[in-house]
Amino acid sequence: MKTLPELETALIADGYRLTPDEARHLLHTAETDALCRTADRVRLHFMGNRMDTCSIMNARSGRCSEDCKWCAQSVHHRTKIDVYPLTDTAEALRHAQDNHDKGVGRFSLVTSGRAMTDREIGQCAAIYRAIAERMPGFQNGHLCASMGLLTRKQLQTLKEAGVGHYHCNIETAPSYFPQLCTTHTFDEKRRTLRWAREAGMRICSGGIIGMGETAEQRIEMAFALREIGADSIPINVLNPIPGTPLEKTPPLSDDEILRTFALFRLIHPQAHIRFAGGRTLLRREVQERALRGGVNAAIVGDLLTTIGSGVAEDREMFRQCGFAE
């Protein structure tokens, strides 16, 4: 079994790909700080010091038919969230313009629900065209979408409207997914992502850690994402929302979180490893250690059903950790 320095040399010099056995070995043997330092050097070699930022708009909230145990928007859970239909163009433009003016790199509409009708996709396509026309920073593939299990035709419509990335989290390891959701399958997610790539979009897919999975299952998730070919990997830390089945789930330790980010970087040397939901639950010191341990991307601003962090505050933290935008 290669040592951590040997793996770093192989990854950088030869384009070597970490094996599942090697990742599990590092999980149980590597010291956290050494693992983070190695991940940081691998990140710098392959991805440079650019911080990739994106923002999301909750464009349709609540009344989701799916029974995902982590989600506040499911009709199966009793949570106190705002419920509203699909946004209109004016409201979406307002959100997009605010983020564009703050220098955020990408913008995404995110909708609750299993999927969208063709009519709703047409409405969203019109919104995307209006955003691209008015905001040059969101042109050339910098618009994203997260709209559930769409059809080939719907994904092609979004691509033609200027969407460059399609997001659909696999959420967890294939072996653990059935314990968290019964109304759709891991394979349906994988199929949607395959169709999005066939339509010409890049893939944004990650998951949530801290939902009761084992550390080995986090490694399993990372390799499932490598098989899918994820270009951007948002890693959420569970925010246990009252009214969901996971509301009393014990939090992960700082070390578990940091080791997850670092190992995802070593498994995905050339992907964007992205801070996502739950980040504000972490102490500033832990966030900075993650930024020096493989992370090179972040969702900034407010999230779907929780408050995020300020864009200016985030940009200052990124700068202090050696990143540029």
Rank of each mutant, 00 (worst) to 15 (best):
G310Y: 04
A324G: 12
H25M: 09
V300N: 10
A215Q: 05
D21Q: 15
G207R: 15
A224H: 14
S74I: 04
L149N: 13
Q287L: 14
L158C: 11
D254G: 05
R190S: 14
C71H: 07
P240S: 07
D88H: 10
A92K: 09
P234T: 02
H95P: 06
A39G: 02
A90W: 03
A72I: 02
F46V: 01
P251R: 13
C144E: 11
K80L: 12
T151N: 08
M221Q: 08
K2E: 07
T182D: 14
Q270S: 12
S205L: 13
F138R: 10
G113L: 04
L238C: 03
A230T: 15
W195P: 02
D314P: 03
R106T: 10
A173Q: 07
F107L: 11
P242H: 07
R43E: 00
E227F: 04
A72G: 04
A23I: 05
R218L: 01
L252E: 12
W70Q: 05
Y128M: 01
G294M: 06
V42L: 12
A290W: 00
L238I: 00
P245M: 11
D98L: 05
A161Q: 04
I241W: 09
D88Y: 04
Q97V: 00
N169D: 14
E66T: 01
A173G: 05
G103S: 06
Q123W: 02
R191S: 12
E213Y: 09
Y176L: 09
P242D: 04
P136I: 04
L193D: 03
A230H: 08
Y128W: 05
T249V: 11
H28Y: 08
I131Q: 14
A34L: 13
C321K: 02
M51N: 08
S175D: 13
I219M: 06
I241C: 10
E120N: 06
M201G: 09
V237D: 14
S55V: 10
A230D: 07
I131H: 15
A34F: 08
R114D: 02
M116H: 03
K2Y: 15
R259N: 07
T306Q: 15
R274N: 14
T19W: 15
G278S: 10
E288K: 07
E66C: 11
C64R: 15
A39F: 04
P174A: 10
R60S: 03
I81Y: 05
R259Y: 10
N236L: 11
F186V: 04
L263P: 00
I170E: 13
L225W: 09
G206L: 09
T157D: 05
G62N: 08
L238H: 04
G122M: 04
E220I: 08
E285W: 01
I267Y: 15
R197M: 09
L35C: 07
D82L: 12
K153C: 09
F186E: 03
K153F: 11
I267D: 08
E31C: 03
H268Q: 09
E316I: 02
L149D: 09
S65K: 13
S74H: 10
R265D: 14
A132R: 06
R41L: 02
H272R: 13
L150G: 02
V295H: 03
D67W: 07
Q270H: 14
E256I: 00
A312I: 07
